[in-house]
Amino acid sequence: MKDQIRSFILPGGNIAEIDTREVKACLQALMKREILIAGICAGVDVLDHAGILCDVKSTHFSDADLVTDKNVITARANAYVDFAVEVAKKLNLFASEADLQETINFWKHYQRVQ
């Protein structure tokens, strides 16, 4: 089953339930296999606690809202749309450049219907 994992995404919020020895061991194993690992908001803390951010640029060590380095994506909470788009790009989920641009334009010009 581990061979089928393409990515591991850590959410933000209360990380107490996921900041465990087992999750850290899993993250370290995935990092060795160069699997895409992504964390947003407090999920970045779990990556840091697991040692994933050693020698990896991240939002913990910069003022950027989104940082991609090697196979790791980190984002601040306010960059949730950019985070989602970046993860989708890395997983090759867009059918084409036009599909990517359509998604970006939707969110860039999105206005909620009242």
Score class of each variant (00 low, 15 high):
residue 72 V to S: 01
residue 21 R to Y: 07
residue 31 M to N: 13
residue 94 F to W: 06
residue 51 G to W: 01
residue 58 S to A: 10
residue 35 I to E: 08
residue 97 E to M: 02
residue 13 G to P: 09
residue 86 E to L: 05
residue 20 T to I: 03
residue 111 Q to A: 12
residue 114 Q to R: 15
residue 30 L to G: 05
residue 50 A to T: 07
residue 108 K to Q: 14
residue 79 A to Q: 04
residue 87 V to A: 10
residue 35 I to C: 15
residue 68 T to S: 11
residue 96 S to E: 07
residue 36 L to T: 05
residue 71 N to H: 15
residue 78 N to M: 14
residue 21 R to P: 07
residue 15 I to L: 03
residue 43 G to L: 02
residue 46 V to G: 04
residue 74 T to R: 01
residue 86 E to A: 15
residue 35 I to V: 15
residue 105 N to V: 01
residue 59 T to E: 00
residue 88 A to L: 14
residue 81 V to F: 07
residue 27 L to E: 02
residue 67 V to F: 09
residue 78 N to L: 13
residue 76 R to V: 02
residue 31 M to A: 13
residue 34 E to I: 04
residue 98 A to E: 14
residue 72 V to M: 10
residue 26 C to G: 01
residue 20 T to F: 03
residue 97 E to C: 00
residue 101 Q to H: 10
residue 54 C to W: 06
residue 93 L to M: 14
residue 110 Y to S: 10
residue 24 K to M: 09
residue 25 A to G: 10
residue 21 R to H: 08
residue 17 E to A: 15
residue 39 G to Y: 05
residue 36 L to Q: 04
residue 44 V to N: 11
residue 70 K to A: 11
residue 87 V to Q: 07
residue 108 K to A: 14
residue 101 Q to L: 11
residue 101 Q to M: 10
residue 19 D to H: 09
residue 105 N to Y: 00
residue 28 Q to W: 01
residue 74 T to E: 00
residue 83 F to V: 03
residue 70 K to V: 03
residue 10 L to C: 05
residue 71 N to W: 00
residue 111 Q to D: 11
residue 29 A to W: 02
residue 71 N to Q: 13
residue 22 E to R: 09
residue 47 L to M: 13
residue 45 D to S: 05
residue 38 A to S: 13
residue 100 L to Y: 09
residue 101 Q to S: 06
residue 32 K to R: 12
residue 55 D to H: 14
residue 45 D to F: 01
residue 90 K to S: 12
residue 109 H to N: 15
residue 4 Q to S: 13
residue 58 S to N: 04
residue 25 A to F: 05
residue 40 I to K: 08
residue 1 M to N: 12
residue 60 H to L: 15
residue 93 L to A: 04
residue 20 T to E: 02
residue 100 L to Q: 04
residue 8 F to T: 11
residue 7 S to N: 03
residue 32 K to F: 06
residue 43 G to A: 06
residue 60 H to Q: 15
residue 59 T to Y: 04
residue 8 F to A: 15
residue 97 E to L: 08
residue 30 L to Q: 03
residue 15 I to K: 12
residue 65 D to I: 07
residue 49 H to A: 14
residue 45 D to K: 08
residue 107 W to A: 07
residue 40 I to M: 07
residue 7 S to E: 00
residue 62 S to M: 12
residue 96 S to M: 01
residue 88 A to C: 12
